[in-house]
């Protein structure tokens, strides 16, 4: 009997890991802050990569390897955040950050394609867009802190 109860508890604990979490307000704010920080870090990294590539200071294989890493890292951060069920008082914050994360993912993918195709003429515009997005993320991070 005890073994059966323990097994049931273990199964419930395991299954709870498959359900999107419902964080309280403080936990959600903490996760938002960390996600915004991670997205800011990768956005600025990609901006720096494109700028140094445009200036002829970056090796193409290194840029491609880092872009792939930044894209994966952003995907992971975005997935972990968007699967949360936000507290109702934080709906606007959830929507805002999810939108910015989506924009960051799209821009990093654009950057990867541009570097893969060696379309250097596109780099300055992409750098501007990445920097503008980074500023928005920085402001959001500042508000969350």
């Amino acid at each position: 009997m005890k073994v059966g109860t323990s097994g049931l508890v273990a199964l419930l604990v395991l299954l709870s890991g498959c359900v999107p979490s419902n964080p309280d307000t403080d936990t959600f704010d903490d996760k938002s802050l960390r996600t915004a920080g991670a997205a800011l870090s990768q956005t600025r990294t990609v901006s720096g990569l494109l700028q140094t590539s445009y200036d002829g200071r970056m090796l193409r294989p290194t840029a491609l390897a880092q872009l792939r890493y930044s894209e994966d890292s952003l995907d992971t951060a975005t997935g972990a955040f968007t699967e949360l069920n936000p507290p109702s008082a934080r709906d606007a914050q959830y929507t805002r950050l999810s939108t910015l994360l989506g924009e960051a993912g799209d821009l990093v993918a654009e950057a990867r394609i541009a570097v893969e195709r060696s379309e250097e003429a596109r780099y300055p515009r992409l750098v501007d867009r990445l920097d503008a997005l980074a500023s928005k993320l920085e402001r959001l991070e500042g508000r969350l802190r």
């Binding site: 870090s41 990294t45 002829g56 090796l59 880092q66 890493y69």
Partner: peptide, 20 residues
């Protein structure tokens, strides 16, 4: 605001300073 998570980010300051 870049927090290092990869070896590529470790190398980035060298590229900025000294190029390829």
């Amino acid at each position: 605001g870049i927090e290092v998570e990869s070896l590529g980010q470790v190398a980035l300051p060298v590229a900025v300073a000294l190029g390829q």
